[in-house]
Structure formats: C-alpha cells, structure tokens
C-alpha cells in the first residue's frame, strides 16, 4: 500500500518544501525558486499519474502493446511553459524591485514602504 503510492508521497514532500520556501523565505529570488519547486512537484504528480506499469512512451509502433497515458504529458508540457513564463516575469520584477528599492529582502521592503 505504502509502496503503491510512493511517488505520490514524494510529490507531497516536494510540494511542502516548495511552499515552505515561498512562505518562509524573505529573499525574492528564493521565493521564485520555491515557486519552481512547487510547480515541478505538480508536474511529477501528473506524470506519475500517466505511468502505466509495463507501458512505454506513447509513440506508436507495431511492436509495442502497452503505452503510458499521453494526456498528462500534454497537459504538463503546457504547464511547464506556463511555469517558465511566470518565472521570467517574476525575475524581471525582482530586478526592477532591486533597482527601485535597493533590496530584494521582503522584510526590508516592508520597512522601506512603511517609512
């Protein structure tokens, strides 16, 4: 039972680590990295869903009987792109924040804004 869902356990731990970084760390770049981990864990989750025991990559061929499920792969391809788009935009904002505030630490930004 435990082993059956081993992949999913990993996913949960990865998600928690990612989320923890986002919330607990004040550095904005670190937050983006956390966001990446969080998103990737979801990718791992979807791809694990798509795996069929004994199956092979969904590229049709006469010699293969069982394929893994292609649909999660498609969805995750899209999601990866969405993820990188978010990362790029987030980092661009980080750069602008650094230029405007001189800092990329959350608590310092808070202090500057409250002045």
């Amino acid at each position: 039972m435990i082993l059956d869902l081993f992949n999913y356990w990993i996913v949960v731990i990865l998600m928690m680590v990612g989320l923890f970084i986002i919330v607990a760390r004040g550095n904005l770049v670190k937050k983006i990295i956390g966001l990446n981990i969080f998103q990737t864990s979801v990718f791992v989750f979807y791809i694990s869903v798509g795996k069929v025991q004994g199956g092979s990559a969904p590229i049709l061929s006469d010699s293969i009987e069982v394929y893994s499920n292609p649909l999660p792969h498609v969805l995750i391809l899209t999601a990866i792109v969405v993820g990188v788009a978010t990362t790029a935009l987030g980092l661009a904002l980080v750069i602008r924040i650094k230029e405007a505030y001189g800092s990329v630490e959350e608590d310092e930004l808070q202090v500057i804004d409250n002045q």
């Binding site: 966001l35 978010t86 935009l89």
Partner: peptide, 22 residues
Amino acid sequence: RRALWASFQYLIVGTIGATFIL
C-alpha cells in the same frame, strides 16, 4: 515603485492559487 512590489506579491499568490487549481 510600490506597484512593482504589489505586482510581485500578486504573482506569488496568484501562481500558488493557479497551481492549487492545477
């Protein structure tokens, strides 16, 4: 300049929200 910071915060929260939906 606070717009940048507001936008960043929105980006983080929004992405978490979207990932939850996913």
